[in-house]
Simulated assay, not measured.
Amino acid sequence: MSIENKVVLITGASSGIGEASARLLASRGAKVVLGARRDDRLRQIAEGIEEDGGQAAWRKLDVTDPQQNKDFVAFAKERYGQVDVMFLNAGLMPSSPLSALKTDEWDRMVDVNLKGVLHGIAAALPEFTAQKSGQFITTSSVAGLKAYPNGAVYGATKWAVRELMEVLRMESAMEGTHIRTATIYPAAIQTELLNTITDKGAKEAMNQTYDSYQITPDRVASVVAFAIDQPEDTNVSEFTIGPTIQPW
């Protein structure tokens, strides 16, 4: 399997999709490098992976800081000698109507959901270009495919991620650098995203949706593993994943 021995860097790895992906990929032989702001959780997850026979390292990471992203990639290369996959998974979803004018939250979403992805690309792209191989995977959202009330800014950041990944794939093909990209569009997945919502009406509506439909993050992790496990000459670009019973 092509997952085995690959060095996979994961942002937003302290919970949810990031944690589930780290555990699954490590169980299949990947060397995972975990990044997030909660270093206590990263340590706990990495120790659990190693206790189960896997290989894991961790480093505290704020994706909004360009230098921390570069240091994260350098740390992974120093630890394992190479960098094969960058899973740009960190994100925030403080949904609210535009009329609420929660501009501080708008800025945070742009900083994490969009600029955080750009910083991750900038950190890993030179390595991938030099070795003429590598893969970027990003977590977008079904809100990156269609519009939802209360999700204008969140959706805008996720639409932007879709554009970034597709152009990166095209440019890599044109430049002969063999970099693969995959974008994942989750619907209601059990994560901590809802904890960032401060608008009362938006939070109540989202809680009702998730309570009715959500599936566990390991369902997304299996898609991440599928994308990585494809032959190096094969790119699978986009995956929409959500509960069968949710009319998203």
Rank of each mutant, 00 (worst) to 15 (best):
P126F: 06
P126A: 07
P126C: 09
E127W: 05
E127A: 06
E127C: 07
E127S: 09
F128H: 03
F128M: 13
F128E: 05
F128R: 03
T129K: 13
T129H: 03
A130S: 10
A130Q: 15
A130P: 06
Q131M: 14
Q131C: 07
Q131G: 05
K132S: 15
K132H: 15
K132V: 13
S133A: 10
S133Q: 13
S133G: 15
S133R: 15
S133N: 09
S133T: 15
G134F: 12
G134L: 14
G134H: 10
Q135C: 12
Q135Y: 07
Q135V: 13
F136N: 04
F136I: 14
F136R: 08
I137P: 00
I137A: 00
I137H: 00
I137C: 01
T138N: 09
T138W: 00
T138A: 15
T139K: 01
S140F: 01
S140W: 01
S140D: 03
S140N: 10
S140P: 04
S141F: 02
S141L: 00
V142L: 14
V142C: 15
V142N: 13
A143Y: 01
A143H: 10
A143P: 02
A143W: 02
L145V: 08
L145T: 11
K146P: 01
K146G: 10
A147C: 13
A147Q: 11
A147V: 14
Y148N: 04
Y148E: 11
P149L: 06
N150T: 05
N150Y: 13
G151T: 08
G151K: 14
A152Q: 02
A152K: 06
A152H: 07
A152Y: 02
A152F: 09
V153G: 11
V153R: 02
Y154I: 02
Y154A: 03
G155I: 08
G155D: 12
G155A: 04
A156C: 07
A156E: 00
A156W: 00
A156G: 09
T157R: 03
T157C: 15
T157L: 06
T157N: 12
K158P: 01
K158C: 06
K158A: 00
W159E: 02
W159A: 02
